[in-house]
Amino acid sequence: MQPTDFRFLRSAENALYKIHYESYDDWIGNFAKNLDLISNENSAKKINDFLDNKIDEKSSAIVIGRGPSLKKNKHLELLSKSDYDGTIICCDGALIDVLKNGVTPDKFKKFIVTSIEPYKRIEKYYIDEVVKSYGNKILAILPVIANPDVVAILQQYKVNIFWIHLLFDLNEGKKSFNYITSKIIRSRINEGLPAIQSGANVGTSSWFIAWKIIGVPNVCLIGINHGWDIDDPIEKIISHGYENKEKKIDPDAKNITKFVKKVFNPDFNCYALQDPIYQFYSETFKEFISRSPSWLNTINATEGGVIFGKKIQSMKFADFLAKHKY
């Protein structure tokens, strides 16, 4: 396995900073358009009241990502046939598949979907008849800078929305976006909202939501690979799953492999391949897991991918479901 070069993590954080400040004006507009809804709807800190959740030391949540292991290991089929009664936290990109595979709020009453992106492009994760049909039984956690068009779709589908702040510049003090927006909201509703670390992606955000907001001491991960399968086409890997069609990356074919890291996962005895974005995601996620409180158990039941290491317990998803009923 190639070693992690932590210089790259800081480079990635710098690059994300540049990318996102290109959209800063849009975030301000999004927040302004959402403000009436934020004022009239719910803070995410009230979500347990809606879930009728009584948290104890055995309580758990399952965070569902859309990594390749989800289909490969038939985890949705396994979950849909189980009698699990804990909280389901579904990342937006997985929602349609999750619902279509029988993991629905009719069967799993504590069903949450999460989004963190402030962009219109994530409409595609919601626009579907299956989402519409279950809309009024789904709880969504959204950032205050969510794209208003996405918010409108969720409203149209009667999804119950709960709001959070995404932390990014609070350390810059009273002139920071996080500080100013929090004061504006408090002036409207006399209370604040939870503010979460995104970890740069919705999977890591959902892990934070599970223990920081829902408060469960056991968080199970499925479909959180942060890597590609060893046989995936190199073009898919190097383009991060054909993610950005607008920009061109054209590394010399001879040098393509230097962008890709091959990782052996000793817990599941498998290899995965990481493009630089997944290298960044996984190292950051593992950093935050290693810093999480001692009362929290992070259980990786993905049965693939690259999430292993300090304070991460790996097990088969079937074993998790046998051990955790709620």
Partner: peptide, 13 residues
């Protein structure tokens, strides 16, 4: 990072 799919990411705090 700048040229690829990082638009789907968010900043680390």
């Amino acid at each position: 990072i700048l040229k690829s799919g990082a638009k789907g990411s968010f900043m680390i705090y």
